[in-house]
Write a protein that binds this DNA or RNA. Structure first.
Lengths: 226, 226
DNA sequence: TTGCCTAATCAATCAGGAATTGGTTAAACG
DNA sequence: CGTTTAACCAATTCCTGATTGATTAGGCAA
């Protein structure tokens, strides 16, 4: 009994004596057990107790550290994309982007809106689908940026990265160019107008309509491919 | 003139002939210029044109690739957190989570709802703040999971990771325990009830009210600390 | 048997350097 | 004066070896 808990007391004493601050790394188990004069098994049992208690955390290849375990690293875009599919991505856009448009209408500066208008102009002058898609991407990101919320922008970037990873292969050829009556032109105009008017509901609705049109277009594209 | 544009034509011909799909990597400049039979300088000028056109992108140490430049790799949670602040995080939660609650009300299965109810029960039985916060985290993630949309769940995880990184230091002591009349209990109940009732608007509203209460609580906590 | 210790092994991670690659500069050449 | 060539720079990748927590198997004593 006294023996069994010996390692834990030794460990506690060591931590108290060294009074390490959070995130300090303590020696590797192979040395540490010799320092404390206990077997590695006993040391690991003691460490397990303190880890369960949230006083330290361990990781293979890294070491043992004081404090609470840092948050799980977010899975990479590629992994999310592998577990997702175009339908989910479209749905997520429909959930998130109208909200971003709303925030943009609330927080956009004159400079933001001017940049959006310039982007609209550039998209109409695009001579290839690739150029057009660059403008389209840029406009949607400008809307996110206009929220002036770093975190929301980061979330949009994640969404966008996954979208591009999921619909990877789909690329229009380079010879055609966007028709001058492309549906997105009007929809983008309405979106930016609503943001400029500070009309929150209209901005969200315009984004919603636009994305629904994109979705319908995607469906049509898929049917035509079969 | 003919000479000057020679490299560009050669390059275009190569791209057309090999008909590479997007994101294909083409040879390093030092070999490529020999293949095309032009000097490296000319090749680089031609590549610059196509890069400006958005048909390819280059990066030191990586190489030259076909297609549009991938968006800046998603910054790690730590970097987002460093560029953000508690106010932004709270606002982002208010924007995103009610929407997730709405999606949950639409897509939750009976098993999802049962798990939420179990989580509510566990949160009431928590004897320490740490245990309670584990339950709280779990409930919010269960709501996200109930959307059954991989991408939305991933976005929630990012938001949550940033939240935890931003409010890093703030941790309640381990001696107190959540009072039995803690405001979150009622709010969580209302949220899960609305989801179970498939009432989209009520679910979103319940989440909104809950987060506003959390926000008010945070403010009060901050004032008390000063 | 049961429990513990020791050693070996595994798998994840990190550290360092060599090699690769786009970007840049300077001298040589015509 | 423009072009080519070579060298160098800086960012990135790749590889190898070492480190480290986790796991397992054998030996050993009570």
């Amino acid at each position: 009994m006294d023996e069994a808990q010996g390692a834990l007391t030794q460990l506690r004493a060591y931590l108290a004596q060294q009074n390490l601050n959070a995130n300090a790394q303590l020696p590797p188990e192979r040395e540490f057990c010799e320092v404390l004069g206990v077997s590695r098994g006993e040391l690991r049992k003691a460490l397990a107790v303190l880890e369960e208690n949230g006083e330290l955390w361990r990781h293979v290849g890294k070491g043992t550290f004081v404090g609470t375990r840092p948050f799980e690293e977010i899975t990479g875009v590629a992994e999310i994309a592998a577990a997702s599919n175009p339908r989910e991505v479209m749905h997520a856009r429909l959930v998130v982007e109208p909200m971003l448009a709303r925030e943009a209408a609330l927080n956009a500066t004159a400079a933001d809106i001017a940049e959006m208008r310039q982007c609209l102009k550039a998209s109409r002058e695009a001579t290839t689908w690739r150029q057009y898609e660059n403008c389209d991407n840029r406009l949607h990101r400008l809307v996110a940026e206009a929220s002036h919320n770093t975190l929301l922008i980061a979330l949009f970037d994640t969404l966008n990265a996954v979208r591009r990873a999921v619909v990877w292969g789909r690329l229009r050829n380079n010879v055609d160019r966007p028709p001058s009556d492309h549906h997105s032109f009007r929809e983008h105009d309405a979106l930016v107008d609503a943001i400029a008017d500070r009309d929150l509901a209209a901005a969200a609705a315009a984004m919603d309509r636009h994305l629904h049109a994109v979705q319908a277009n995607l469906l049509r594209f898929r049917l035509a491919a079969e």
